[in-house]
Amino acid sequence: MSEIKKEWPLWEVFIRSKQGLSHKHVGSLRAADAKMAIENARDVYTRRSEGISIWVTESVNVHASNPTEQGPMFEPSDDKVYRHPTFYEVPEGVGHM
């Protein structure tokens, strides 16, 4: 017999603050379905004009890297400074890059 779930699923919320910027993760919330998740996100996360577009996805669909593998995953790039474009002379007049 399947158990009736009392908790609504968890959703992750992404908001685009203005045209040209990408959606950014702002937090999570609970909702029964996607429609309700978008409405709830509107009420919880855009009350102070934070956004012009909302994405939601169920949290179970987010797959994450394993925190215990931080060493092998990320440290090898720490000593490869040549991967940063910091060895070029920037001509005057180019301004901010």
């Binding site: 609504w8 919330l29 609970r30 909702a31 409405e39 709830n40 009420d43 919880v44 009350r47």
Partner: peptide, 11 residues
């Protein structure tokens, strides 16, 4: 009844 709805109603 839930935090999200609490905020919706007060909005």
């Amino acid at each position: 009844p839930i935090l999200e709805e609490d905020i919706a109603l007060t909005n």
